[in-house]
Protein backbone atom coordinates (compact mmCIF):
# COMPACT_ATOMS: atom_id res chain seq x y z
CA UNK A 1 0.00 0.00 0.00
CA UNK A 2 1.31 3.39 -1.02
CA UNK A 3 1.96 5.99 1.64
CA UNK A 4 0.75 9.55 1.23
CA UNK A 5 4.35 10.55 0.61
CA UNK A 6 4.64 8.04 -2.22
CA UNK A 7 1.32 9.12 -3.69
CA UNK A 8 2.46 12.73 -3.63
CA UNK A 9 5.48 11.83 -5.74
CA UNK A 10 3.49 10.13 -8.47
CA UNK A 11 2.84 12.00 -11.74
CA UNK A 12 -0.06 14.44 -11.50
CA UNK A 13 -2.40 13.75 -14.43
CA UNK A 14 -4.94 16.43 -13.52
CA UNK A 15 -2.95 19.62 -13.58
CA UNK A 16 -3.50 22.57 -11.27
CA UNK A 17 -5.18 25.62 -12.75
CA UNK A 18 -8.53 24.00 -13.49
CA UNK A 19 -11.67 25.81 -12.43
CA UNK A 20 -13.30 23.44 -9.96
CA UNK A 21 -14.60 25.34 -6.91
CA UNK A 22 -12.33 25.76 -3.88
CA UNK A 23 -13.30 22.94 -1.54
CA UNK A 24 -14.70 20.67 -4.25
CA UNK A 25 -14.39 17.00 -3.38
CA UNK A 26 -14.23 15.71 -6.95
CA UNK A 27 -10.60 16.59 -7.87
CA UNK A 28 -9.36 14.83 -4.72
CA UNK A 29 -10.93 11.65 -6.07
CA UNK A 30 -9.87 12.20 -9.67
CA UNK A 31 -6.22 12.80 -8.79
CA UNK A 32 -6.10 9.60 -6.74
CA UNK A 33 -7.94 7.60 -9.40
CA UNK A 34 -5.58 8.73 -12.16
CA UNK A 35 -2.62 7.73 -9.97
CA UNK A 36 -4.04 4.24 -9.48
CA UNK A 37 -4.77 3.90 -13.21
CA UNK A 38 -1.32 5.14 -14.27
CA UNK A 39 0.34 2.36 -12.25
CA UNK A 40 -0.54 0.17 -15.25
CA UNK A 41 0.58 2.46 -18.13
CA UNK A 42 -1.36 4.93 -20.24
CA UNK A 43 -4.76 6.24 -19.20
CA UNK A 44 -7.80 7.36 -21.15
CA UNK A 45 -10.40 9.17 -19.04
CA UNK A 46 -13.97 9.63 -20.20
CA UNK A 47 -15.98 12.28 -18.42
CA UNK A 48 -19.73 12.83 -18.51
CA UNK A 49 -21.04 16.36 -18.89
CA UNK A 50 -20.95 17.96 -15.47
CA UNK A 51 -18.84 20.07 -13.11
CA UNK A 52 -15.69 18.02 -13.65
CA UNK A 53 -15.90 18.24 -17.41
CA UNK A 54 -16.80 21.90 -17.79
CA UNK A 55 -14.18 23.02 -15.30
CA UNK A 56 -11.21 21.07 -16.62
CA UNK A 57 -11.46 21.28 -20.41
CA UNK A 58 -12.16 24.88 -21.30
CA UNK A 59 -10.86 25.28 -24.85
CA UNK A 60 -8.07 26.09 -25.72
CA UNK A 61 -6.87 24.80 -22.33
CA UNK A 62 -7.07 21.38 -20.76
CA UNK A 63 -6.16 20.23 -17.28
CA UNK A 64 -5.83 16.64 -18.47
CA UNK A 65 -2.35 15.28 -18.94
CA UNK A 66 -3.71 11.88 -19.94
CA UNK A 67 -6.03 11.40 -22.93
CA UNK A 68 -9.53 12.66 -22.22
CA UNK A 69 -12.85 12.34 -23.96
CA UNK A 70 -16.11 14.06 -23.21
CA UNK A 71 -19.04 13.04 -25.38
CA UNK A 72 -22.36 13.91 -23.68
CA UNK A 73 -24.16 13.68 -20.35
CA UNK A 74 -25.73 10.23 -20.33
CA UNK A 75 -23.23 8.23 -22.33
CA UNK A 76 -19.81 8.22 -20.70
CA UNK A 77 -20.07 4.47 -20.04
CA UNK A 78 -20.94 3.76 -23.68
CA UNK A 79 -18.26 6.15 -24.90
CA UNK A 80 -15.45 4.67 -22.83
CA UNK A 81 -16.68 1.19 -23.77
CA UNK A 82 -16.14 2.22 -27.39
CA UNK A 83 -12.64 3.46 -26.60
CA UNK A 84 -11.82 0.21 -24.82
CA UNK A 85 -13.21 -1.81 -27.74
CA UNK A 86 -11.09 0.19 -30.20
CA UNK A 87 -8.05 -0.53 -28.03
CA UNK A 88 -8.76 -4.27 -28.18
CA UNK A 89 -9.24 -4.13 -31.96
CA UNK A 90 -6.16 -2.01 -32.64
CA UNK A 91 -4.01 -3.96 -30.21
CA UNK A 92 -4.97 -7.22 -31.96
CA UNK A 93 -4.08 -5.66 -35.31
CA UNK A 94 -0.75 -4.40 -34.01
CA UNK A 95 -1.69 -0.74 -34.39
CA UNK A 96 -1.37 0.33 -30.77
CA UNK A 97 1.65 0.07 -28.56
CA UNK A 98 1.74 0.06 -24.80
CA UNK A 99 -0.91 -0.71 -22.24
CA UNK A 100 -3.87 1.47 -21.42
CA UNK A 101 -6.44 1.68 -18.65
CA UNK A 102 -9.88 3.15 -19.22
CA UNK A 103 -11.77 5.12 -16.63
CA UNK A 104 -15.12 6.85 -16.81
CA UNK A 105 -16.15 9.62 -14.42
CA UNK A 106 -19.77 10.62 -14.05
CA UNK A 107 -21.54 12.61 -11.38
CA UNK A 108 -24.61 11.25 -9.61
CA UNK A 109 -26.89 12.89 -12.18
CA UNK A 110 -24.93 11.31 -15.01
CA UNK A 111 -24.79 7.94 -13.29
CA UNK A 112 -27.81 7.34 -11.02
CA UNK A 113 -30.23 9.05 -13.41
CA UNK A 114 -29.63 9.86 -17.06
CA UNK A 115 -26.64 7.56 -17.57
CA UNK A 116 -27.97 4.48 -15.77
CA UNK A 117 -28.94 2.62 -18.95
CA UNK A 118 -25.59 3.20 -20.67
CA UNK A 119 -23.81 2.16 -17.46
CA UNK A 120 -25.85 -1.01 -17.12
CA UNK A 121 -25.21 -1.92 -20.76
CA UNK A 122 -21.47 -1.37 -20.52
CA UNK A 123 -21.22 -3.40 -17.30
CA UNK A 124 -23.18 -6.30 -18.79
CA UNK A 125 -20.94 -6.33 -21.87
CA UNK A 126 -17.93 -6.81 -19.65
CA UNK A 127 -15.60 -4.09 -20.93
CA UNK A 128 -12.28 -3.80 -19.16
CA UNK A 129 -12.98 -0.41 -17.65
CA UNK A 130 -13.45 1.32 -14.32
CA UNK A 131 -16.52 3.49 -13.84
CA UNK A 132 -16.29 6.00 -11.02
CA UNK A 133 -19.32 7.91 -9.84
CA UNK A 134 -18.35 11.11 -8.06
CA UNK A 135 -21.44 11.44 -5.98
CA UNK A 136 -22.20 14.91 -4.65
CA UNK A 137 -25.87 14.15 -4.23
CA UNK A 138 -27.43 16.60 -6.69
CA UNK A 139 -27.10 18.22 -10.11
CA UNK A 140 -24.51 20.70 -8.93
CA UNK A 141 -23.33 21.86 -12.36
CA UNK A 142 -26.76 23.17 -13.30
CA UNK A 143 -27.29 24.74 -9.88
CA UNK A 144 -28.18 22.15 -7.23
CA UNK A 145 -31.19 20.26 -8.54
CA UNK A 146 -32.47 17.05 -7.00
CA UNK A 147 -31.11 13.74 -8.27
CA UNK A 148 -32.03 10.22 -7.24
CA UNK A 149 -28.94 10.34 -5.01
CA UNK A 150 -30.10 13.41 -3.07
CA UNK A 151 -30.71 12.46 0.59
CA UNK A 152 -34.16 12.44 2.14
CA UNK A 153 -35.29 15.88 3.36
CA UNK A 154 -32.35 17.72 1.76
CA UNK A 155 -33.02 21.12 0.24
CA UNK A 156 -32.28 21.51 -3.46
CA UNK A 157 -33.48 24.11 -5.95
CA UNK A 158 -36.07 21.68 -7.35
CA UNK A 159 -37.14 20.28 -3.98
CA UNK A 160 -36.79 23.43 -1.90
CA UNK A 161 -37.89 23.86 1.68
CA UNK A 162 -41.11 25.83 1.59
CA UNK A 163 -44.18 26.38 3.72
CA UNK A 164 -45.68 23.02 2.83
CA UNK A 165 -42.84 20.89 1.46
CA UNK A 166 -39.64 20.34 3.37
CA UNK A 167 -37.02 19.23 0.89
CA UNK A 168 -36.78 15.88 -0.87
CA UNK A 169 -39.56 13.46 -0.02
CA UNK A 170 -37.82 10.26 -1.20
CA UNK A 171 -34.86 8.24 -0.01
CA UNK A 172 -31.87 7.89 -2.33
CA UNK A 173 -31.54 5.08 -4.83
CA UNK A 174 -29.12 2.30 -3.85
CA UNK A 175 -26.93 2.64 -6.91
CA UNK A 176 -24.02 0.62 -5.54
CA UNK A 177 -26.42 -2.25 -4.88
CA UNK A 178 -27.86 -1.95 -8.38
CA UNK A 179 -24.37 -2.14 -9.86
CA UNK A 180 -23.48 -5.10 -7.62
CA UNK A 181 -26.52 -6.91 -9.06
CA UNK A 182 -24.69 -6.87 -12.41
CA UNK A 183 -22.26 -9.40 -10.86
CA UNK A 184 -19.22 -7.63 -12.25
CA UNK A 185 -15.77 -8.49 -10.82
CA UNK A 186 -15.46 -5.54 -8.45
CA UNK A 187 -17.83 -3.00 -6.89
CA UNK A 188 -17.03 -0.64 -4.04
CA UNK A 189 -18.35 2.32 -2.15
CA UNK A 190 -15.72 4.74 -0.89
CA UNK A 191 -15.18 8.25 0.38
CA UNK A 192 -12.50 10.90 -0.20
CA UNK A 193 -12.14 11.17 3.58
CA UNK A 194 -10.66 7.66 3.82
CA UNK A 195 -7.88 7.98 1.26
CA UNK A 196 -6.20 4.75 2.24
CA UNK A 197 -9.39 2.71 1.82
CA UNK A 198 -10.17 4.61 -1.39
CA UNK A 199 -6.75 4.10 -2.93
CA UNK A 200 -6.77 0.39 -2.11
CA UNK A 201 -10.18 0.07 -3.80
CA UNK A 202 -8.96 2.02 -6.82
CA UNK A 203 -5.98 -0.31 -7.11
CA UNK A 204 -8.25 -3.34 -6.98
CA UNK A 205 -10.61 -1.81 -9.52
CA UNK A 206 -7.80 -1.19 -12.00
CA UNK A 207 -6.31 -4.65 -11.41
CA UNK A 208 -9.34 -6.83 -12.11
CA UNK A 209 -10.08 -7.94 -15.64
CA UNK A 210 -13.47 -6.67 -16.76
CA UNK A 211 -15.65 -3.91 -15.42
CA UNK A 212 -15.23 -2.39 -11.98
CA UNK A 213 -17.31 0.31 -10.33
CA UNK A 214 -16.67 2.75 -7.50
CA UNK A 215 -19.26 5.02 -5.95
CA UNK A 216 -17.36 7.75 -4.12
CA UNK A 217 -18.82 10.46 -1.93
CA UNK A 218 -17.43 13.86 -2.95
CA UNK A 219 -19.06 16.63 -0.90
CA UNK A 220 -20.04 19.85 -2.64
CA UNK A 221 -19.50 23.02 -0.67
CA UNK A 222 -21.99 25.01 -2.80
CA UNK A 223 -24.77 22.46 -2.78
CA UNK A 224 -24.43 21.11 0.74
CA UNK A 225 -23.73 24.55 2.18
CA UNK A 226 -20.68 24.16 4.38
CA UNK A 227 -17.41 26.16 4.56
CA UNK A 228 -15.01 25.17 1.79
CA UNK A 229 -12.30 24.00 4.22
CA UNK A 230 -14.59 21.30 5.68
CA UNK A 231 -14.98 19.08 2.60
CA UNK A 232 -13.03 16.10 3.87
CA UNK A 233 -14.67 16.47 7.29
CA UNK A 234 -18.14 16.34 5.68
CA UNK A 235 -17.19 13.15 3.87
CA UNK A 236 -15.78 11.67 7.08
CA UNK A 237 -18.94 12.39 9.06
CA UNK A 238 -21.05 10.77 6.34
CA UNK A 239 -19.00 7.61 6.84
CA UNK A 240 -18.94 7.78 10.65
CA UNK A 241 -22.71 8.24 10.85
CA UNK A 242 -23.05 5.23 8.52
CA UNK A 243 -24.98 7.39 6.07
CA UNK A 244 -22.26 6.45 3.56
CA UNK A 245 -20.84 3.04 4.51
CA UNK A 246 -17.55 1.94 3.04
CA UNK A 247 -17.74 -1.54 1.53
CA UNK A 248 -16.82 -3.64 -1.44
CA UNK A 249 -18.41 -6.47 -3.38
CA UNK A 250 -15.87 -8.85 -4.82
CA UNK A 251 -17.01 -11.89 -6.77
CA UNK A 252 -20.42 -11.56 -5.14
CA UNK A 253 -19.02 -11.37 -1.59
CA UNK A 254 -19.98 -8.27 0.38
CA UNK A 255 -17.53 -6.83 2.86
CA UNK A 256 -17.75 -3.71 4.99
CA UNK A 257 -14.27 -2.18 4.89
CA UNK A 258 -14.73 0.34 7.70
CA UNK A 259 -16.82 0.00 10.84
CA UNK A 260 -16.92 3.13 13.00
CA UNK A 261 -15.94 2.39 16.58
CA UNK A 262 -19.02 4.29 17.60
CA UNK A 263 -21.72 5.03 15.08
CA UNK A 264 -22.41 8.77 15.27
CA UNK A 265 -25.98 10.11 15.18
CA UNK A 266 -26.96 11.38 11.72
CA UNK A 267 -27.55 14.78 13.29
CA UNK A 268 -23.77 15.21 13.70
CA UNK A 269 -23.48 15.30 9.90
CA UNK A 270 -26.78 17.03 9.15
CA UNK A 271 -26.30 19.98 11.48
CA UNK A 272 -23.13 21.08 9.69
CA UNK A 273 -24.87 21.57 6.33
CA UNK A 274 -27.14 24.37 5.18
CA UNK A 275 -29.21 22.03 3.00
CA UNK A 276 -30.49 20.32 6.18
CA UNK A 277 -30.87 23.44 8.33
CA UNK A 278 -34.66 23.06 8.53
CA UNK A 279 -34.29 19.62 10.13
CA UNK A 280 -33.04 21.21 13.35
CA UNK A 281 -36.31 23.07 13.85
CA UNK A 282 -38.58 21.31 16.36
CA UNK A 283 -41.50 21.02 13.91
CA UNK A 284 -39.31 19.08 11.47
CA UNK A 285 -37.74 16.79 14.00
CA UNK A 286 -39.77 13.84 12.70
CA UNK A 287 -38.05 14.16 9.32
CA UNK A 288 -34.65 13.80 10.93
CA UNK A 289 -35.95 10.77 12.83
CA UNK A 290 -37.16 9.22 9.56
CA UNK A 291 -33.80 9.88 7.96
CA UNK A 292 -32.01 8.31 10.91
CA UNK A 293 -34.29 5.26 10.82
CA UNK A 294 -33.53 4.71 7.13
CA UNK A 295 -29.76 5.02 7.73
CA UNK A 296 -30.03 2.47 10.57
CA UNK A 297 -32.05 0.08 8.44
CA UNK A 298 -29.68 0.22 5.49
CA UNK A 299 -26.63 -0.14 7.75
CA UNK A 300 -28.10 -3.22 9.47
CA UNK A 301 -28.96 -4.75 6.10
CA UNK A 302 -25.42 -4.15 4.92
CA UNK A 303 -23.91 -5.68 8.05
CA UNK A 304 -26.13 -8.74 7.65
CA UNK A 305 -24.96 -9.11 4.07
CA UNK A 306 -21.31 -8.51 4.84
CA UNK A 307 -18.91 -11.34 5.59
Amino acid sequence: MATLKELSRMPELLSPGHRMCPGCGAPILVRLALRAASEHGGVVAGVATGCLEVSTSIFPYTAWRCSFIHNAFENVAATISGVETAYKALKARGKVEGNFKFVAFGGDGGTYDIGLQALSGALERGHDMVYICYDNEAYMNTGIQRSSSTPFAAHTTTCPVGKVRKGKTEFPKDLTGIVAAHRIPYVAQASISHWNDLYRKLQKAFSVEGPAFLNVLTPCTRGWRFPSDETVEMARLAVETCFWPLYEVEDGRWKVTFKPRQKKPLEEWVKRQGRFRHLLQPENRHLLEQAQAEVDKRWEELLARSE
Binding site: A78, I80, V83, A86, G121
Partner: peptide
Protein backbone atom coordinates in the same frame (compact mmCIF):
# COMPACT_ATOMS: atom_id res chain seq x y z
CA UNK B 1 -20.18 -4.44 -29.71
CA UNK B 2 -23.81 -5.34 -29.06
CA UNK B 3 -25.01 -2.30 -27.20
CA UNK B 4 -28.24 -1.65 -25.32
CA UNK B 5 -29.58 1.21 -27.47
CA UNK B 6 -28.89 3.23 -30.60
CA UNK B 7 -27.84 6.12 -28.38
CA UNK B 8 -25.12 3.91 -26.96
CA UNK B 9 -24.30 2.54 -30.43
CA UNK B 10 -23.45 6.01 -31.67
CA UNK B 11 -21.75 6.90 -28.37
CA UNK B 12 -19.54 3.80 -28.50
CA UNK B 13 -18.68 4.45 -32.14
CA UNK B 14 -17.70 8.03 -31.25
CA UNK B 15 -15.41 6.66 -28.52
CA UNK B 16 -13.94 4.07 -30.87
CA UNK B 17 -13.35 6.59 -33.67
CA UNK B 18 -11.70 9.00 -31.23
CA UNK B 19 -9.43 6.12 -30.24
CA UNK B 20 -8.33 5.83 -33.88
Amino acid sequence: VLVESEHSAMSAVVGAAAAG
